[in-house]
Amino acid sequence: MSEGLSFHFDVDGDSFTSAGQASVQVKKDLRRLGVDPEIIRRVSIAMYEGEINMVIHAHGGHAEVRVTEQAVEIILEDRGPGIADIEQAMQAGFSTAPDAIRSLGFGAGMGLPNMKRYTDHMDIQSTVGVGTRITMRVDLPQ
């Protein structure tokens, strides 16, 4: 694992009901690598929230997961509408999700806060009309 492992996923923007496939695969891969279960839980939930966001708001995107001896890094990239006010989007309960999404149990405005909560580092780069790139890192116990 010294050089690190990298996994790439395409998140399908049209299949809301199958969202989560990338996160579930990451969970399996990390388990195979012998990563601590609580770390796996944090990584896979953070990634699932990101996946759901890409499906709801951005018609899908790409996810890259890198595992080194120090950390698990997740990079989510989309060409969606972008986030106008990141500070506002980070507030628990703030949501622009449509009603159809809410009726499925999502859109409660907890996605980005959960991603921050479960990771040790999170960075959002977003340009309105261009897209969003989110980098998250979960440190591994040394």
């Binding site: 989560g20 609580e38 149990g105 405005g109 996605g111 909560r117």
Partner: peptide, 28 residues
Amino acid sequence: DLLSWVMGRAGAGEAWITIMSNRNIVAV
């Protein structure tokens, strides 16, 4: 019932009571 709340608060090994019945509950 709000899935992100569940992912943010439910602990590993807990029984999760909900009325949501769609496919996403399996992933959650």
